[in-house]
């Protein structure tokens, strides 16, 4: 579904991602581990097509099409969605209106209210996007938008950061739904999930994992094994590991 080949990405003139290649098959969830400033978010933003993340080399192929230079909105309309770790506040714009836009013309007040109810977002629908939201509310708002958008490929940037124990199981449940984890053979949704702490993996099953260090993929393997190793030795352990 998604192939990244030899990608180099610059932010503010500085190269952050150095020659990364990876692929995610249909129905697969790839988890990306890495310490702070290893380039995880940069990679996700470059895949989403945000203009500040300048691709200087390599290619991104989505559903067989080269999207390396497509604008962000076209990528979204092709079926890529993103959960931002720190989305901006958009003053004056109501969450409900963004959710409506995510439905892309399939505007349906009933669907919005139902989704909002499931995400415990009813009271926040008519508030300005992310304005005064708590950490958990921001994540639920992001998930509400993604649920409405219903993308085939989901980029999840630290969905577990700043979320308390009450919210994390709800966040996990919604991600599982987005990624169609209830299906086996007929699953069509795929995802790329960033986690620093690995908490979300208690709720969401990933198929494969990579560790990103200094803008490079350091190792690939089984998500649970890699997480156990990180828990035992920290990312410093990865740095000395010669796998």
């Amino acid at each position: 579904m998604l192939q990244v080949e030899g990608l180099k990405v610059k932010v503010g003139g500085k190269e952050i991602i150095h020659d990364i290649s990876l692929n995610v098959d249909i129905g697969e969830t790839l988890v990306l581990f890495g310490p702070n400033a290893s380039g995880k978010t940069t990679l996700l933003m470059a895949i989403m097509g945000l203009p500040r993340y300048e691709i200087t080399k390599g290619m991104i192929i989505f559903k067989g099409q080269d999207i390396t230079h497509l604008p962000v909105d076209e990528r979204a309309r092709m079926g890529i969605g993103i959960l931002f770790q720190r989305p901006p506040v958009v003053r004056g714009v109501k969450t409900r209106d963004v959710v409506k836009a995510c439905l892309g013309g399939r505007e349906d007040g009933y669907v919005i209210d139902q989704l909002a109810q499931r995400l415990n977002m009813v009271d926040l629908l008519d508030r300005e996007v992310n304005y005064g939201f708590s950490g958990g509310e921001v994540k639920r708002s992001e998930l509400l938008q993604l649920m409405a958008q219903s993308p085939e490929f989901v980029l999840l940037d630290e969905p577990d950061s700043g979320v308390d124990l009450v919210n994390i199981s709800l966040v996990g449940e919604m991600i599982n739904e987005l990624l169609q984890k209830d299906r086996m053979r007929t699953r069509t949704s795929s995802g790329l999930l960033i986690t620093h702490t690995g908490h979300i993996l208690d709720y969401v099953n990933a198929d494969r994992a990579c560790v990103l260090l200094n803008g490079r993929i350091w190792c690939r393997g089984n998500p649970r094994e890699i997480l156990d190793s990180i828990k035992a030795h920290g990312y410093e352990g990865c740095e000395v590991c010669q796998r």
């Binding site: 909105d73 979204a76 931002f84 958009v90």
Partner: peptide, 26 residues
Amino acid sequence: AEEEVEYLMARGLSRAEAIAAIVRGF
């Protein structure tokens, strides 16, 4: 703020639609 425009574009709004939504909200 460009960041706000891009945020809405990441939800599938065109650039013009994103700006219009922000201005209307403003």
